[in-house]
Design a protein around this nucleic acid. Sequence first.
DNA 1: TAGATTGTTAATCGATTAACAATC
DNA 2: TAGATTGTTAATCGATTAACAATC
Lengths: 202, 202
Amino acid sequence: MTIHRLSVYTRCLLQLEEDGVKTISSQEMADRFNLNSAQVRKDLAYFGEFGVRGIGYYVAGLKAELQRILGLDRQWPVVLIGFGNLGSALFHYKGFGRQGFRIAAIVDDDPGKVAREVESVPVVASRDLAREVRARGIQIAIVAVPADAAQPVTDQLVGAGIRAILNFAPARLKVPREVRLQNVDLSIELETLSFYLAQGSR
Amino acid sequence: MTIHRLSVYTRCLLQLEEDGVKTISSQEMADRFNLNSAQVRKDLAYFGEFGVRGIGYYVAGLKAELQRILGLDRQWPVVLIGFGNLGSALFHYKGFGRQGFRIAAIVDDDPGKVAREVESVPVVASRDLAREVRARGIQIAIVAVPADAAQPVTDQLVGAGIRAILNFAPARLKVPREVRLQNVDLSIELETLSFYLAQGSR
DNA sequence: TAGATTGTTAATCGATTAACAATC
DNA sequence: TAGATTGTTAATCGATTAACAATC
């Protein structure tokens, strides 16, 4: 929860830096996100003393600190599994690159796609997955394959030494404890909305 | 939070029904999701008395109740805004349809896409958005356009009487209070992962 | 020095869990 | 009746917020 908010703060700071703002108080930050200023200060103070009493936080300095904490102060090579519609969308999505994530390899078993390059990123078959992961020092995978292909390829990823998986497939993946798994469920959010509509019309 | 869990329970019950399971206890449900049985009971009891003491919950009955509560006991026509890679991926994503969401119209201003039909769903230009929304009684929109196009089209949606928006664009949308907005941030999840990797290697 | 704002402690709030009478 | 399991109250836990001394 705190980590989630740190991400949000970081984006805010990027924006502020672009706008030429030099310092910001916890109160001003809180106002932007409907949060409480004490919460902002507590979140930040947990990782160190980044503020200056009477002044607030220096935008550039705090941004750098948060990026370091979140691991965004470096490039993370990522392997993208599945290059169908969703995989393709994620590949072209600009948001990842902006935070230092770089898709370094694509895995897809469609013979029409394998061995090609997409914007100079190689597309390989799943049999070459481990080789690519090791050769490129990849620790993060994004899984964007159909539900039934998700677990087998996940097992391969784990075998290849992947440490974190962002899963878009509508499947409940099993991974060993030491691998971090984050699921993104595209339809559960829609269900939340329909709940409110259904309640509203009652 | 509770709503989110209700969605999860519903999926579990769908699975159980397929597997021919007739009844389930709160303890069994809890075990499947690393939850506490008291929490399951409390979540369910909030909406009514669905269980039977000594027995547990009837799978079919509880499923029907939860679907009703979540508004999943009906078809929701949805308008999809943007038919690029992401829009296309969402269109073909099977998870939505399974829960009663049906993409009834697609809006895209690319002249190469307008006026065509995709799997008998019409693709219209944004100037015809309001007409389609009203004609089809659409209350839910999925926004999958680039960041800079998101706010203008959102304003149009609001004007057309849309009541809920699921936003995939990396933009902070402004909507009036009565419109429910749910943001899906594709890269914030990745940042959570990199935090743990960065921490681990420290 | 006066004003502003932090970092942190104490108080509050809400959500989770344990416990158990009710009851199938 | 005995065993199982609910619905619900009371206890616990954790997260949020208020308050304020420290200090720029």
